[in-house]
């Protein structure tokens, strides 16, 4: 794995291509909560060496150079990462949405984007074993795993 500055994303990947890493296998992003990690997996087809290249992007202004002029195969990967994580790829030749139809939707794979179904659906696990106590209080408030507290719909 190689960590690079996002401002040098194009330069680093170009230099790697010159060194033989001419095949882009995959490009995606990971929401780390504090920032986004942009990840490219490149392969040297002659030596079958492969390398993960990672650049940190700030969540509120995720802008990076498009790799499409270097790797034509980055086209759809960048369109997917753009709509799923809210990343702008500067110089992308065809920055339309790839899979999503709703232009106004928040990027669904950002951790800050609530899943409407998990907000609207009361979690069955919120009930307490033995039911509410005599005073009607719940012994301990339980939250569904993996759902941030601020998303959870208030139960009855």
């Amino acid at each position: 794995m190689r960590t690079v500055e996002s401002s040098r994303w194009w330069e680093e990947l170009s230099a790697l291509a010159v060194d033989g890493f001419t095949y882009l296998d995959y490009l995606t992003a990971i929401d780390r909560g504090t920032h986004l990690d942009l990840v490219a997996h490149v392969v040297n087809p002659d030596t079958v060496e492969h390398l993960l290249v990672v650049a940190a992007l700030p969540g509120d202004s995720a802008v990076v150079d498009s790799l499409v002029p270097l790797h034509a195969g980055a086209n759809w990967h960048e369109r997917e990462a753009a709509e799923m994580f809210g990343i702008t790829f500067t110089g992308h030749p065809d920055p339309r949405r790839l899979l999503l139809r709703d232009e106004s939707a928040a990027p669904p794979l950002r951790k800050s984007t609530p899943l409407p179904a998990r907000v609207d659906t009361p979690w069955p696990g919120a009930a307490t074993a033995g039911g509410d106590d005599a005073a009607g209080r719940r012994a301990r408030r339980q939250l569904p795993p993996g759902v941030p507290a601020q998303w959870v719909a208030e139960g009855p």
């Binding site: 999503l100 669904p108 899943l115 179904a117 998990r118």
Partner: peptide, 9 residues
């Protein structure tokens, strides 16, 4: 996929 925003429920 009951919670996926892109899947018909």
């Amino acid at each position: 996929y009951w919670d996926a925003p892109t899947v018909t429920q």
